[in-house]
Computed example of a mutant assay.
Amino acid sequence: MSGDDLFLSEDEFEAAVADALDGIPPQLLRLVDNVAFFVEDEAPPEDPDLLGLYEGTPLTERDLTWAMGSLPDRITIFRRPTLRLCRSRHEVVEEVRITVVHEIAHHFGIDDARLHELGWG
Rank of each mutant, 00 (worst) to 15 (best):
T76D: 07
V100W: 02
E95H: 04
R79E: 05
F108G: 05
L28E: 12
D73W: 12
E14F: 08
F108E: 08
D41R: 15
P72E: 06
F38G: 10
G56C: 09
D19I: 09
C86V: 02
T82M: 07
Q27Y: 13
M1R: 15
D73G: 02
D112L: 15
H102S: 06
L59C: 09
V96D: 08
T57P: 03
L8W: 10
I98D: 04
L64F: 12
A16I: 06
I24L: 12
L71K: 14
T60R: 11
R74P: 01
P25D: 08
S2K: 12
T60D: 12
F13Q: 00
V35F: 13
L83C: 14
D19K: 13
P25A: 01
F37Q: 05
P58E: 10
D41A: 15
E12T: 08
R87T: 13
L50Q: 10
P44M: 04
H106T: 03
D19V: 10
I77C: 00
H116G: 12
P44K: 10
V92R: 09
T60K: 11
R89H: 05
D49P: 00
L83F: 04
L85H: 12
P81V: 01
D47Y: 05
C86G: 04
H102C: 06
I98R: 14
E103W: 00
E103N: 01
V100G: 08
T76K: 01
G109Q: 06
R74G: 02
L59Y: 05
T99S: 11
D22Y: 11
I75F: 05
I104L: 09
P44C: 09
L8Q: 07
D4K: 11
E117N: 11
V32A: 01
L28G: 03
V101P: 07
F78C: 08
S9F: 05
I77E: 04
I104Q: 00
G109N: 07
P45T: 03
L21N: 07
V17S: 11
L85R: 15
V32E: 00
E94I: 10
L59K: 08
L51N: 06
W120Y: 15
L50G: 04
E117D: 15
L50K: 13
A43E: 05
V101N: 11
A16M: 08
R114E: 15
A67C: 11
D41V: 07
T82I: 14
V32Q: 04
L29I: 03
H107V: 00
L28Y: 01
I98K: 14
D33H: 14
A67T: 13
F37S: 02
T82Q: 03
S2D: 08
